[in-house]
């Protein structure tokens, strides 16, 4: 269970100071699949970073099962991330000097996962094991970053536009795989996206505008990645 209470965050100083997150409160149950929707610049990525402990908030609290991460030291946060979370970033952020296989191994090793190749296969990159990030297309890089995160076997998975760089066919394929895995392994999943169709696959949809949550809806009937429009 993730409890977010009165979260506020500012960026900038002096006259440039503005609120990116404005009094955000939210509860996310274990195994829940949440989609965050909102216009560009509304603070979605920032929310993800703060909730996952990558960035500090200015006020408010974030608790994972009663354990607050707001006051953790950098070392504690690191080991918290090791045991609990994985990320798929909007800009992929692969390690440029390592090939696909080793990029995925980076995630897998933390969990002691020797069987990481199946994730690479699942995102359709088994023939690109030895390729380096700069030899891959944007969408391929995005899929590597997905495999890397999944191989870590996280309790909570954060995804920032995981299908943003993918065409419809690959996008559906990858999304379907992520959702299937989520159902199987029952991890919590928080996904940011522009694509409001994707929201139909989630348990909960959170809409944001100018740093505020404006609406939270529950889906009665979740659709699969192949049933939604794109």
């Amino acid at each position: 269970m993730i409890k977010i209470k009165n979260l506020t965050k500012y960026y900038g100083t002096g006259d440039n100071r503005f609120k990116v997150l404005d009094d955000i409160s939210l509860e996310i149950k274990d195994g829940e699949y949440v989609v965050v929707l909102g216009a560009s610049g509304s603070g979605k990525s920032t929310l993800l970073n703060v909730v996952s402990g990558l960035e500090k908030s200015d006020s408010g609290s974030i608790c994972y099962d009663e354990k607050s991460i707001s006051n953790m030291s950098e070392k504690q946060l690191t080991s918290f991330r090791k045991d609990n979370t994985a990320f798929i970033f909007q800009q992929y952020y692969l390690l440029p000097n390592l090939n696909v296989e080793k990029n995925v191994k980076m995630g897998a090793d933390l969990y002691g996962n020797k069987d990481y190749k199946k994730y690479i296969e699942a995102v359709g990159l088994s023939d690109k094991l030895k390729k380096f990030p700069n030899e891959l297309s944007g969408g391929e890089q995005q899929r590597v970053s997905i495999a890397r995160a999944l191989a870590k076997n996280p309790k909570v998975l954060f995804l920032d536009e995981p299908t943003g760089a993918l065409d419809e066919k690959t996008g559906r394929l990858v999304l379907d795989y992520i959702i299937k895995l989520q159902k199987e392994q029952k991890f919590t999943m928080i996904m940011v996206t522009h694509n409001s169709n994707i929201a139909e696959t989630a348990d909960t949809v959170v809409r944001m505008n100018s740093g505020k949550i404006i609406e939270v809806t529950k889906n009665q009937h979740k659709k699969s990645a192949y049933e939604i429009g794109w």
Partner: peptide
């Protein structure tokens, strides 16, 4: 894209026992 033709980038290294070791030799 940061692909320099000079040797030094995109060097294949054998799989080591863990990621840290892989990283070490790539560095």
């Amino acid at each position: 894209k940061g692909i320099t033709k000079a040797k030094g980038k995109n060097i294949e290294i054998k799989n080591k026992k863990n990621f840290i070791a892989d990283m070490k030799s790539s560095v």
